[in-house]
Design a protein around this nucleic acid. Structure first.
Length: 372
RNA sequence: GGCGGCAUAGCCAAGUGGUAAGGCAGAGGCCUGCAAAGCCUUUAUACCCCGGUUCAAAUCCGGGUGCCGCCUCCA
């Protein structure tokens, strides 16, 4: 049986073949450290942990990079409103993030590069894009000209002409300064709202756009071509689409071979929101006395491409299932029965487990094999 | 308006043409002085609805219904 993944770009399940035999470069979009991460965020990180662990289980040497976004609009607004320096805010939430990662038993990435530590790399990349004619400047800001990258849209399979500007309601269309709304910022010129948050660079006084950090940092630590790039489905467009445009226009090579995206988490059947009272950070649940391993179980037990319905009934069930496995593990260690028969059972379990996991990380099937 | 996902038991959830995995809860039992814990057994004539294709459909096709997501800085 071969390892297969559903590739967002091809929309098909493909056999996994790394660029270099035995090695996997894995880049996963990390948190914006402007607040405590919620359990929906951790659904993605736990999925990525499962992916990494299974790749390693299959014998691959994985190099896993996860970025930390430590400069963007919400952070700058927080700094402006509270007067707290950017680094102070992000240090607090980065520390909290690492605590949460540990609590959930997530293997740490090999590096967690932060955007603000890689301004020179981003500037370099933007300069290359500028030299190749993929950018234009407007009022000190630098934008990527999507018209120069005909392959744009191949990941999300969206037709740019069909997009409705501002349809999400998330972004104020009046704030666009780009020639076309679809062009995105590589470098944002400083204005008074940015306060103390700016860098003096060859590109002028300002700060990087969001998308360029992932292109610059993945290139720095993993090279211009990646085996696997992960994130939540909401990142497909525009973030990952923009990464492709930046990276491929820069390197002239295919940026990512396998795109894996996990679906969202809902709570009790509803989208998580503070107004519904179903919004939970990991620490909210831990403070209620829930077992972090049971939380991990619920987050992981639904296939990553299916919406995950988090509920407290499911959490209670996970707790019980986990207890049974823990008890079983103890008894297995003490087992003194006929060794060959026990070994045969274990081999059969392992084979069924691997067959399920090889099929795009079918964890539900794999757990079923374990319980059988 | 464009693109995409989902619907399987009280709950969670596998299963993409061959007659419904698994977990939780429930029920029965074993063990125990009683209990708890643990262990064993058991639990869907049936997969949102209506058509169609087929010897055979949860699975494929057509049409509905419902829920959810993305549409330019959301995991």
């Amino acid at each position: 049986m071969t390892l297969r993944f559903q590739n967002t770009e091809s929309r098909t399940k493909q056999e996994f073949t790394p660029l270099e035999p035995g090695k996997v470069s894995l880049y996963t979009c990390g948190p914006t450290i402007y607040n405590f991460a919620h359990i929906g965020n951790f659904r993605a990180y736990v999925f990525e942990d499962l992916l990494r662990r299974y790749l390693e289980y299959r014998g691959y040497a994985v190099t896993h990079i996860m970025n930390l976004t430590d400069v963007e609009d919400k952070l700058i607004r927080t700094c402006r409103e509270t007067g707290e320096p950017l680094k102070s805010v992000t240090a607090r939430y980065a520390a909290a993030f690492f605590e949460d990662v540990k609590a959930l038993g997530i293997l740490p990435a090999h590096r967690y590069p932060a955007a603000t530590d890689h301004i020179p790399e981003m500037v370099e990349m933007i300069k290359i894009l500028r030299d190749k004619g993929h950018t234009y400047e407007d009022q000190g800001s630098i934008y990527f000209k999507l018209g120069t990258f005909p392959r744009y849209g191949r990941l999300s399979h969206m037709d740019l002409d069909q997009l409705r500007t501002g349809a999400s309601g998330r972004v104020d269309a009046d704030e666009y300064e780009a020639e076309e709304a679809r062009d995105f910022a590589l470098w944002k010129a400083w204005d008074e709202n940015d306060g103390e948050v700016y860098w003096e660079t060859e590109l002028g006084k300002g700060r990087p756009g969001w998308h360029i950090e992932c292109s610059a940092m993945s290139t720095k630590y993993l090279g211009p071509r990646l085996d696997i790039h992960c994130g939540g489905v909401d990142n497909i467009f525009p973030h990952h689409e923009n990464e492709i445009a930046q990276s491929e226009c820069c390197s002239g090579q295919t940026f990512v071979n396998y795109w894996l995206h996990c679906a969202h988490l809902v709570v009790e059947g509803r989208k998580m929101s503070k107004s519904l009272g179903n919004f939970f950070t990991l620490r909210d649940l831990l403070e209620k006395g829930h077992d972090p391993q049971a939380i991990r179980w619920v987050l992981i037990a639904t296939h990553y491409r299916q919406p995950n319905n988090f509920s407290f009934d499911a959490l209670d069930g996970a707790k019980q299932a986990l207890n049974r496995l823990r008890d079983f593990r103890l008894r297995l260690g003490e087992a003194k029965g006929p060794g060959d028969a026990l070994q045969a059972e274990c081999d059969a379990c392992r084979a069924a487990f691997e067959e399920a996991m090889d099929d795009d990380l079918n964890i539900s099937g794999a757990l079923g094999a374990v319980f059988n």
